[in-house]
């Protein structure tokens, strides 16, 4: 018996001034990641400083939206769901959910692509992934 992921109700996301551009892009279906312009390195999660140099010389840049599952776990609740870290092709590992699939078929190393799922009310969508 497969365990199909369901579209569970997602809570509203708390948007703040430094992450607002990230969530504005998510509304347009685009995945952004942090770029430290001092070092040229990408970072996750988006923030108002570089975690490499602490300067504010940072910007958000568009990622390809594809990656591989670094690790995952299926929560065996009434409405099962899969948390995961997905390693984007740009290298950063992001905390997310794997959706629109049989949760019992997931494996580390599996290729996935980004999908955006609605949250409560006017809140921006959540950034999730589904097997390619």
């Amino acid at each position: 018996m497969p365990t199909m992921a369901s579209d569970r109700a997602l809570p509203a996301i708390q948007v703040d001034p430094t992450n607002k551009p990230y969530f504005d892009a998510a509304r347009e279906g685009r995945l952004l990641i942090g770029l430290c312009k001092d070092t040229g390195k990408y970072f996750w999660y988006p923030r108002g400083c570089s975690p490499f140099t602490l300067s504010n010389n940072v910007e958000l840049v568009e990622a390809k939206g594809t990656g591989t599952i670094y690790t995952y776990s299926v929560m065996r609740t009434k409405e099962p769901y899969a948390v995961a870290y997905v390693e984007l092709d740009e290298g950063v590992r992001i905390f997310t959910n794997i959706v629109d699939c049989d949760l019992d078929s997931l494996r580390i190393g599996q290729r996935v692509k980004v999908v955006f799922k609605p949250t409560q009310g006017d809140s921006p969508p959540a950034t999730m992934f589904t097997p390619i």
Binding site: P11, N19, T71, Y72, S73, Y81, F95, I108, A126
Partner: peptide, 23 residues
């Protein structure tokens, strides 16, 4: 600051440890 990128995804104590076990 990390909450908007983790809480909506159902991050719980048990799954945050389970992912370490899986890896």
């Amino acid at each position: 600051p990390d909450d908007p990128f983790e809480i909506p995804y159902g991050r719980t104590v048990v799954n945050a440890y389970a992912m370490c076990a899986m890896r």
